[in-house]
Design a protein around this nucleic acid. Structure first.
Lengths: 320, 320
DNA sequence: TCTTGCTATGAAATGCGTTTCATAAATTAA
DNA sequence: TTAATTTATGAAACGCATTTCATAGCAAGA
């Protein structure tokens, strides 16, 4: 394959001039520019991106760490990131972590090695003490409240959101409220857990471990929830389900088992995915695509560290 | 940041020796190896990946083109690719094409520029005359029958599969059968369309454009299908829905509208996603994760071009 | 003792584009 | 007309690791 030198020779100019043409720098006489372009055409010249990267020290590649790629929550988030990346001429390198710390570290190391320019971590696993070792290598952006860290973040105030949701159910007359969540650990889960505990003590209910359902990520997990519900002596009358798909699964399974919604069980979803609309699920709208966009913009801004809070909106439908 | 030269100087050896240590080449005396390792430790040496790429002419990056990232079909497929990529020390560069030809070409150009080592195209848009211009730059792997092309592929015989599914419904007593599909064009859609037309003429039914539903990708599209069904004078008695999520949406919507399944309408899904199991949807199991794995293995095999046919399995449940 | 062959090591070439620096030529301002 | 700019261009340095080639030392086999 022809390289810049061949083009220069062919066009009768220096490599510098070719580079100027390549990068649209000024100060190239029109006839020389033409000659260069023609030579490139003639040799079907392709510039070696790796040489460009080496030279410029940047790759136009941005890493995105998600626990799963085939989850609707991260699907929408990544879609938002991907759309904005496209607009800004960046490409995405996808890391599926499966919530394994090692995978996240691999991504951080790619940042360190400058194989990617920045890194977006959608659901952090590593502790901050690990993350902080890498902050010097490029922007790291989080999808959680990271205001105390030297990184950028786009986040939702999960404590407040969860509190509001619980209050809403309480105002609708529910006293026994449970919730379904994706994972036990994680900053977001912790915030929600705290909001839940605080809420319970405020309304004078005791904390019932049985009312919390973990690993509720997808449609299919709704079935397990209902199964456990059926085995309870004193089941909750309302459930906050932190994923519309899990909520939809729960609703579907309830219908099958003859549990009336919202009479026997009120269900509130999260995200406002299309499925929630179709199934008339009351939910909290989280602007995932918009968040993805913000995340990417923060990722490509290597100058400043910013924190953006995004607010959610209650969508009232028929399951509460 | 320290480079290989600094390390060499510090360890009192040549850069070649450092490179040997770096790449586990033989012929380095133990004490020198130690010295190099220590120097690397001391300077917290990170090798410049871009220099490695430039030098080696490879990137350990594989591109994956999907129309949407947040679609369960591609979600599972990419998961399969991602898992296998991890095992083989490759990373993925994700291209969301939105079925725009230009996006696919961008990916092909990255292959051409050697920014990625190979490319997996999950749902081709460009014509073969375009693709063939890029086959010389690295392996391009397709998720469709591409036996006639100089590329690798992992595919399903959609003609046969669709035919079998139609026969199955026919054997169950259905004469008026319609189908829902993602997009109008595309190799797979065409194969299915042909199977459908051939089937109709075989059973002596006339082709009814109304019985074909396009843009059926997700749960929410099921509702539209049912809406259209309700407006028909002579609706089909069975529907082949080429996505379990769309099938699930259809089932849900039918229940809401009082259409009994399978009595009034038989529904057969595709993929055997978890949602199909929960909702007892009869479906055709497509081993997406396994296909993803095969795709990746083909992508990293730069020597040979192979074609692997994958077979599907009928999962009988309650919607037919 | 003389080959042959392996072990060990480094200099230099290679991959390729960008950017800095120096210089020359052409304008514009004074 | 001279000084100050602006325009135009190229040589060389730079980013950095890999790999080829040459060489030297040493051991085993003939």
């Amino acid at each position: 394959m022809a390289n810049i030198k061949d083009i220069a020779k062919r066009a009768g100019v220096s490599v510098t001039t070719v580079s100027r043409v390549l990068n649209n720098h000024p100060y190239v006489r029109e006839d020389k520019r033409e000659a260069v372009l023609q030579a490139m055409e003639e040799f079907n010249y392709q510039r070696n991106i790796n040489a460009v990267h080496l030279s410029k020290g940047e790759t136009l590649l941005i890493g995105v760490v998600v626990p799963f790629t085939n989850h609707p929550y991260f699907g929408l988030l990544v879609e938002g990131v991907a759309n904005e990346a496209m607009k800004n001429n960046y490409k995405l390198v996808l890391f599926q972590s499966n919530y394994e710390e090692e995978r996240e570290i691999e991504a951080l190391k790619m940042l360190q090695h400058k194989q990617i320019d920045s890194l977006i971590i959608c659901s952090r696993i590593c502790g901050w003490e690990v993350i902080s070792q890498f902050t010097g290598y490029g922007p790291i952006v989080f999808c959680e409240d990271a205001r105390s860290q030297n990184v950028s973040s786009t986040f939702i105030d999960h404590y407040m959101t969860f509190t509001n949701a619980l209050e809403y159910l309480h105002n609708k007359g529910h006293q026994k409220i449970g919730y379904c969540i994706g994972r036990r650990s994680g900053a977001n889960s912790r915030q929600r857990g705290k909001a839940y505990a605080d809420f319970l003590s405020r309304i004078g209910e005791s904390y019932n471990e049985e009312y919390i359902f973990y690993e509720c990520l997808n449609f299919e997990h709704g079935e397990e929830v209902v199964q456990r519900l059926l085995n309870m002596d004193n089941p909750p009358s309302a459930l906050l389900v932190t994923s519309d798909f899990a909520a939809a699964g729960t609703v579907t399974s309830c219908r099958e088992k003859g549990i009336r919604i919202p009479e026997d069980l009120a269900i509130m979803g999260f995200d406002n995915q299309p499925i929630a609309k179709i199934m008339h699920i009351t939910t909290l709208e989280i602007p995932l695509v918009q968040m993805g966009k913000k995340l990417l913009l923060q990722a490509i801004d290597s100058e400043s560290r910013t924190h953006e809070e995004v607010s959610v909106k209650l969508i009232e439908r028929q399951t509460v």
